[in-house]
Amino acid sequence: MTQQEALFRFAVRMGDNSLVLGHRLSEWCGHGPQLEEDIAQANIALDLIGQARNYLTYAGEVEGKKRSEDDLAYLRTDRDYLNVLLCELPKGDYAQTIARSFLFDAFHLPLQQALTTSTDERLKGIAEKAVKEVTYHLRHSSEWLIRFGDGTEESHSRAQVALNDLWRYTGELFIPDEAEEMLAKAGVVPKLGDIQKEWSATVGRVLKEATLNRPADGWAASGGKKGVHSEHLGPMLAEMQTLQRTYPGVEW
């Protein structure tokens, strides 16, 4: 793998993580538990889709085959999507949505912070904008997780169930693939081990305040980062890509 290929894979993964999670959050629009949350989740989804556009545009340039952000988003099958499994899981109930966002945001923020010192100018530029956005995302998901944990018996139980179910998907966040190892050595991206320490500290602090138990580490699901996904991504992409697939090659 050349460094250019590694950079392409990394940019695609960052884009896919944001796009797939943004898509899932956008499914709440019009159906949220209260109006203010419809607005907040739409905001977060907009940030994430905006980040995805930056990353996929950059990935297309790095690759040098003239693929646009839309070519990459709409004309790849799930086997070429490189996002982590955590992002593609169905939105579930609001506890699952919040718990998933929290577990991802707590990883996403230190990652973006570290990327602001990347030796790659473009990754650095994207991260500088993203840090502000993701800081808000983490605040939003933490606050709600704490409300659920320390709210009612029902909300506590729903939040705990969500955490227990999602925990197995967190291991994959920190297992570097060949591209990430190569780029970390070159100082382009951080070591995922360092991000894991920060993630773990944030998770510990928030779960404590939320009076929720930290699930035990066990078997970790993985595969998303190399394009082997859960059964959920295919249908999501089928829906997302329907117009581009039905009417190929036209402008929208």
């Binding site: 538990p33 209260q34 949350e37 409300r147 709210g151 009612t152 029902e154």
Partner: peptide, 8 residues
């Protein structure tokens, strides 16, 4: 569906 969220 959102009732328990608002109650929490």
């Amino acid at each position: 569906d959102g009732a328990w969220v608002r109650e929490a």
